[in-house]
């Protein structure tokens, strides 16, 4: 399946196995789940949610610098 991923201003498509979770997506992208919040199809959600084909995922940095 294919999901659309937005991180800050960058948008891209990511191919994942069926039944993948948001956590699987983060692992694939090399992002530590402790440092981000996730909006799936516009709604804040937990990383254990299973993704569907054509989902839109926004990865929001939760950790500030400075």
């Amino acid at each position: 399946m294919e999901v659309s991923v937005k991180i800050r201003r960058e948008e891209k498509s990511v191919i994942l196995d069926e039944g993948s979770t948001i956590n699987d997506l983060l692992k694939k992208l090399g992002i530590n789940r402790e440092t981000v919040l996730i909006r799936r199809n516009g709604k804040l959600c937990i990383e254990e949610e299973v993704l569907n084909d054509r989902d839109s995922v926004e990865i929001i940095p939760a950790i500030s610098g400075g």
């Binding site: 440092t35 919040l37 804040l44 929001i60 939760a62």
Partner: peptide, 10 residues
């Protein structure tokens, strides 16, 4: 900090 971010977003 992640919980603060969740709260601020909500």
């Amino acid at each position: 900090e992640k919980e603060v971010a969740v709260y601020a977003t909500l």
